[in-house]
Simulated assay, not measured.
Amino acid sequence: MQSNKLRMAIRATAAAAVLGMASQAGAVSFSAGDYDVNVYGYARLNASYDVDSDQSLSTRSGSYDGLAGNDDAPEGHFGADAVQSRLGFKTTSPEGLNVTVEGDFRPGNLRLRHAFGEYKGVLMGQTWSNFTSFVGNTATLDFDSLPGLAGLQGRVAQARYTTGALSFSLEEPNNGIVNNSDTKDSMPAITARLEDSAGGMSYSAAVLAHQVGYDDGSDDESAFGFATFVAAKMALTDMITIQGTLSYTDGANSYLYRSGDNFGADSAYVDSSGDVETISGYGGSIGAGFNLGNGRSINIGYGLVEVDWDDAEDDGVAVADQSESNQAVMANYKWTPLKNVMMGVEYQFLKRENVDGTDGDANRILFAAQYNF
């Protein structure tokens, strides 16, 4: 029982870090008949100043799109929004059935984040991909965070079964072919994940397999791709943690976090004979957190992803402007001046290099204020 409590605490802590300290701890709870109901969420302001080219997305996250070859771009850009603000509902029936529905306003309209039911380890609906872990993530103010984090770091429709530390799922697939618009999904993505803890360490490992293919009416070709990751977090002292992730993909770069213009890169290409050829990639992140006490903390992290376009280039596929390498360094200071309020400031350095050698970088400063309920 103690081990289960520790495992749940670590998972909750990791999830809170990656989501900007969002939590149901301060949720509004009440009973409606025999149902227990929680209403939770937060209001959040994000602001950014781009010292170099304007790389901001909604939530003021940094983008790799257009970063390479940006030397002549206008400099000095400020922006702010509140679209990360979130609202969620969770109900528990007398039989123990949990139902969650949650949304936010990114990029400016109400967006469905989670909508799923869960009963005795069986989950169906939309929520975080089972090929995701927050265990090794460094807490950042940037909503999209570092490249190279573990797995998809996104939410998909799925059917999942969890027993103890193991979970298995069939999920909506992500299929991308660099030089073909006739992509076809013929089967779900299949995943398996182990996530547990021992002493001061929490860890996670997962594998994914999916089919990547196309059908243009005359040719119907496909190949199998796979992806895997490991992630870990170690508490060195009561004040210091270190964490990291490692990922490898072959034919599943859509699951290699932030490997493309902003998120996943294409997973395959079509050669001159019409065959689907897979593209491999790898990535990772490393970081440290320092708890200064009194609701104050410092977090630093580095992330890197690399995609191997050599075979596609040798086969004459036009990939010169594809991202070969994305990197980021992020460092922040966060503080909690009172309960359920978080404020922070973060420095970012982003760098991208394309297949043709064109590169570019950007310096950014972020500010955030979040009010949980």
Rank of each mutant, 00 (worst) to 15 (best):
P173I: 02
Q243D: 12
D250R: 01
N326P: 01
M8W: 06
N4P: 05
S280I: 07
Y49N: 00
S133C: 08
N326Y: 01
N175E: 12
L146T: 06
S197V: 15
A268D: 08
G289F: 08
V99M: 01
G125Y: 03
A47I: 03
T140A: 11
L6P: 04
S58Y: 02
A231W: 12
G199K: 10
I242L: 14
Y49F: 05
Q55V: 15
V345A: 11
T91G: 09
Q84R: 09
G289P: 04
S56Y: 01
T162G: 14
D220A: 06
I240H: 10
T162I: 10
S58D: 12
G301W: 02
G287E: 05
D261L: 10
A331C: 13
Q158S: 06
D34I: 02
I10D: 02
L208E: 03
N332E: 09
V207T: 12
S48H: 10
I286V: 15
Y255F: 14
G96E: 09
D361N: 14
L87C: 09
R258K: 12
L166A: 12
R155H: 07
L350G: 07
S272A: 15
P94L: 13
S63I: 07
S204Q: 10
G62A: 15
N294M: 13
R7A: 14
N70T: 02
M343P: 04
F131P: 00
T249L: 03
F367E: 09
L87E: 04
S129I: 03
S259Q: 07
N175Y: 07
G20H: 05
G136T: 11
F131W: 01
V178D: 06
A331V: 14
G284A: 07
M239A: 15
D34S: 13
D144M: 05
Q322Y: 04
L141I: 15
N174Y: 13
L236T: 08
D219L: 11
M201V: 15
D359L: 06
F30K: 12
A189I: 10
S285R: 09
I240P: 04
S273V: 10
Y269S: 06
N179C: 11
F224I: 09
D310M: 12
T92W: 09
A80N: 13
G293C: 07
F229L: 04
G200S: 14
G79C: 08
D361E: 15
Y347S: 11
G41D: 08
N340Y: 14
S56C: 04
T132C: 03
L350K: 05
A362V: 12
T59R: 00
D72M: 03
N130M: 07
F89V: 13
T132I: 02
R193W: 03
S297N: 03
D182G: 08
E313W: 01
R106V: 15
